[in-house]
């Protein structure tokens, strides 16, 4: 076994930058120089044959079999917790309190989507406002780049923690109803706000130039 001291030896000449991504627990395998003489080759083969490494391997797996220390997670019966910053299948947010849909149908997400998988329909509603009548994302094509969430001026479309995308169809869509936070959840404040892409940055106020709002 080699400690990371060995790594120091092997890592000669590598800049700080080159080492940056290497964990301190990594170590380099000691690779002996390749034998060049026939005798060297023969003796290496002999050594390897007689050292019984093969049997070590056999022993290790046999041991594990009998230990029966199984690590399988039996999805979908059991599910792992996803990290709090995990962002996948989209969700559509509502405004707090009023529960009004945040999406105003500006179409920026549709425009920016690099895999061209968003389509929406808008119309004039009874209150003479722009209304999103239907909105879909083809999850079969979405590459979860997050651009849509980033561009949304209303913080309406966000990536939620849902990651299950299984479908019998290659093109698998989610529709507006499927994405919208249920209204009771929005009103009761259960809707989650997400950090990161598409969220207000904490220092946003300071960055907006002051405009005279005397009235």
């Amino acid at each position: 076994m080699h400690t990371h001291d060995t790594h120091e030896q092997h890592g000669h000449g590598e800049s700080e930058l080159g080492n940056r991504y290497i964990s301190e627990h990594y170590y380099y395998v000691d690779i002996a120089p390749y034998p060049t003489t026939p005798w060297g080759k023969f003796s290496r083969a002999l050594k390897r044959t007689l050292r019984g490494e093969l049997f070590v391997g056999l022993w290790v797996v046999l041991r594990e079999m009998f230990k029966f220390d199984i690590h399988t997670v039996q999805y979908p019966k059991e599910k792992l917790l996803v990290g709090p910053r995990y962002r996948a299948v989209h969700a559509m947010q509502r405004l707090f309190e009023s529960g009004t849909e945040r999406c105003i149908g500006c179409g920026l997400c549709e425009k920016i989507c690099i895999s061209n998988c968003i389509r929406m329909e808008t119309r004039l509603d009874e209150k003479s406002r722009k209304e999103v009548s239907e909105y879909t994302i083809n999850l079969g094509r979405c590459i979860f780049c997050g651009y849509c969430a980033e561009v949304c001026p209303e913080l309406a479309i966000v990536h939620g923690p849902r990651y299950e995308n299984v479908s019998e169809q290659r093109a698998h869509y989610i529709d507006y109803a499927g994405m919208l936070t249920p209204i009771d959840m929005a009103i009761s404040g259960e809707q989650k706000e997400f950090d990161g892409f598409g969220a207000v940055t904490p220092h946003e106020d300071a960055r907006v130039k002051q405009t005279p709002l005397a009235y």
Partner: peptide, 9 residues
Amino acid sequence: FQYRSNAWE
């Protein structure tokens, strides 16, 4: 046409 489509689409 009002609110039916964005110009760039």
